[in-house]
Design a protein around this nucleic acid. Sequence first.
DNA 1: CGGCATCCTACGAGATACTG
DNA 2: CAGTATCTCGTAGGATGCCG
Lengths: 112, 112
Amino acid sequence: MTADPCLPECGVARFLSLLEGPWATLIVRELLRGPHRFTELRDGLPGISPHTLTSRLRQFERHGIVIRTAYPEIPPRVEYRLTPLGEGLRDVLDAMAAWAVTVPDGESTVTA
Amino acid sequence: MTADPCLPECGVARFLSLLEGPWATLIVRELLRGPHRFTELRDGLPGISPHTLTSRLRQFERHGIVIRTAYPEIPPRVEYRLTPLGEGLRDVLDAMAAWAVTVPDGESTVTA
DNA sequence: CGGCATCCTACGAGATACTG
DNA sequence: CAGTATCTCGTAGGATGCCG
């Protein structure tokens, strides 16, 4: 990729530049179910490392897709919530899921 | 990622496992405009290397998203065309583009 | 609990060169 | 024209450990 500093003109490319890695979209999927705490997100995403989760979450914050709210309590509690912009991703995720059901099973990895 | 051998249950995850890298989706975008030859695809995707293009195209073939047709002519001509399954991705790409227009400009990279 | 710092790996991708 | 082969690189992501 050319690593364009500004957002690309093409809408698809713009989407891609904001939801880079494979985990990014999955995190949004979890957040679409409502606000989540850090550990709740980690539980809902088997295999993700806290490093990756933090990294994606911070990027989403910068892009205005999620809002991070820290409650100064003991024990500390932090809540991640989608912004209206982030909520708009629901249509995209729905489209992905709708398409996925049309994919025949077992044709990935060796068809053998 | 856990690198599950089978397609994930979650539709979103299934989509993600088939359209891995950032170029993958962009290639589909080009193909949605109709059948393309190798060089046409390369021209429409500034910055992509033949290696990457071939790699993604081959994967799409394996997953039944595109059909590769080689015409035994001189000079050789190869055409890549979306299968009905691949055509179904149009809704997803449309959703991405529709969402992207709601993203405010200039908030990516340093807000400064 | 909710991170952050550091180190390391895996893989998509770029560059270059060569072939049917 | 349409690739293939090799090598290197960038970056998402994993592992581990520590801190407020």
